[in-house]
Write a protein that binds this DNA or RNA. Sequence first.
DNA 1: GATGAATGAGAATTCATTCAT
DNA 2: AATGAATGAATTCTCATTCAT
Lengths: 197, 197, 197, 197
Amino acid sequence: MKRNTEKYHQILEAAVKVFAEQGFNHSTVAQVAKKAGVADGTIYLYFKNKDDILIQFYHYKTRLVFERFRQAVKKGRTAEQKLLNLVRTHLAEFQKDINMAIVYQAEIHQHRRLAQDVIKEMSKMYREIITEVVEIGQQQGHIRRNLYVGLVMRFIIGAVDEVINAWIHARGSYDLVSMADPLVELFISGIGVADRQ
Amino acid sequence: MKRNTEKYHQILEAAVKVFAEQGFNHSTVAQVAKKAGVADGTIYLYFKNKDDILIQFYHYKTRLVFERFRQAVKKGRTAEQKLLNLVRTHLAEFQKDINMAIVYQAEIHQHRRLAQDVIKEMSKMYREIITEVVEIGQQQGHIRRNLYVGLVMRFIIGAVDEVINAWIHARGSYDLVSMADPLVELFISGIGVADRQ
Amino acid sequence: MKRNTEKYHQILEAAVKVFAEQGFNHSTVAQVAKKAGVADGTIYLYFKNKDDILIQFYHYKTRLVFERFRQAVKKGRTAEQKLLNLVRTHLAEFQKDINMAIVYQAEIHQHRRLAQDVIKEMSKMYREIITEVVEIGQQQGHIRRNLYVGLVMRFIIGAVDEVINAWIHARGSYDLVSMADPLVELFISGIGVADRQ
Amino acid sequence: MKRNTEKYHQILEAAVKVFAEQGFNHSTVAQVAKKAGVADGTIYLYFKNKDDILIQFYHYKTRLVFERFRQAVKKGRTAEQKLLNLVRTHLAEFQKDINMAIVYQAEIHQHRRLAQDVIKEMSKMYREIITEVVEIGQQQGHIRRNLYVGLVMRFIIGAVDEVINAWIHARGSYDLVSMADPLVELFISGIGVADRQ
DNA sequence: GATGAATGAGAATTCATTCAT
DNA sequence: AATGAATGAATTCTCATTCAT
């Protein structure tokens, strides 16, 4: 079960393409093998089973992406800048590779065990970042104090996910990253008028 | 292909339970039949095939739920009340039957064609409602004018969906509807301080 | 198991159409019932099972047709006229109803037990007729004496059947009966020159 | 979909036996697999589906047999000798393997598409050969000039087929090839007396 | 390590037949 | 007699996984 070899990544990339095209359930190991240019049996030298391909992909991608998220947040100074960097990076990472986006958003969610993991990990990381952003914002006087961070996190993840989903269903026909700024603006100001109270 | 008979609903209900427990892909028609107390073949008197069960469920539930959404919105006077009624009803409908919630949120999305439909229909209905709410709110002076309704819609749907997902993954262990008010408060005011600019 | 009622014949006719269109094996009892305008279950009041429909059709048709063959033969005076009448009638009967022809020629033959019967009955009747024709012809001095009637019978049945098959496969696009005279001419004179020896 | 491997022929042979015994429709893929000594799934490595087994068999056998027919005809000098060689070879080939004969004569004909093909190919080949035989015979002065080759072909194919069918239904209990000479004699001289005109 | 032929468990679906109404 | 909903046995076909080479 060698990982991080060339063939391992070759299979992973092929798998993402195949899964994105046909959906995980309708993809066969043979199709992945063919796309990767290896024999069917070879898959099993690198992955425990078909599910494991999705799981590996998820962990690999998550690690990669989350690290970038953290760095993006670090670069922001104010809470708003941090949040903006986070959302921009999130959208940019998914815009980079629509197949990856499809598999991440759609295919992984059908996978019971994996979906749990995704939500947990995504939540965990987002919670960390959002917690930090909110705290800093509160210290800097830009973020309200009476917030339930758990809900804020859902609120942000949910909106970002949905924006990505809409973009996927539009087959990536517009610039996803350009949604970041207006979206963050909504997160911060809401849809109400500022002096509404 | 008789619909709206007693047996039709009997099978539909059994299917939702089975799909919620095991996931659509890991459920067999035989299991649904058994749970419904009918013979395997009987399923095919009411549904074209296994997929059709999910499709029928989706259309049936969507029609039902959307009508309730519309009525809830109608009852609100101000934009905020309308929005609140929408979100409360949405969460309440899903809280009522966690199996339905699971199938609706998770299983349907793995179905390529159906997922498209869900997103389209959900978007269409939400767009109608949100457009109305936003317009009324703008007339009443409670909602900002510089908003892109398409994005607002994603923002709201996304957040609500994610809140439901989180509740599902917590196995319905808390009161979902109680999330409605703080969520709407976030939609309207955002996380920023009101006089931030 | 009432036979010779109106509904019995109604079902038989519907069955022949359905079997001719789709083949016996790919036809369903439900299709026959629908075409006959009766309920599925009704079929079983008149026929033991699906096979029995084919069997009944065969016996019914055979009785009918063979009687006509015999009469046609009776009307001929010389052996040649008798043979001509037989072949003309045979081709005419099948030309009358191509669906019947299809079922008789193609569908019945796939039915092991029935095929046996068909061949036996057809042989028996043809043998009777051909024997008669040959004997009369020999008495009249028009038919050779050194003939093996069994083979002559095969020779004639085979050729007639094949001519019908060709016509069926051409979708009845030409006049089948016009084949009778040249065919009988071949039976009598063969393809060789008369004084060849 | 490897063809011409050992296993391919192994399955084909098993299939012919099973189909001959039980008929194509009443045979199951599992039975064929068992008889061939392979797993059910293995069938599908060599054949697209159950139908394809029959189709492959037909094409394989037809190619083989037709080649032999052509060679047999080539060896004859006079038209009569050519015809005799053709019929002898035809009967001999089918006598060699009664299972093959059964499947070829009976099972293939129930298969709509295949039946069409069989008749077309058989006709085409027979037409070629018979056309040649008739032309040569006419040049040599042994075959009449006023013949419609299409009908002569049907006449011969039909008779030969029927002779084979009768033999099959008699379970191969007599020598089929011995029918060739009297049959050809009938083709050439007919049943009439030579000086009848 | 790599292959890919072979496996066989598993599932969807069909449809002849029954039988309560 | 007629109906047609319900049955469930039967069968095809798929495909993840294994293992001899």
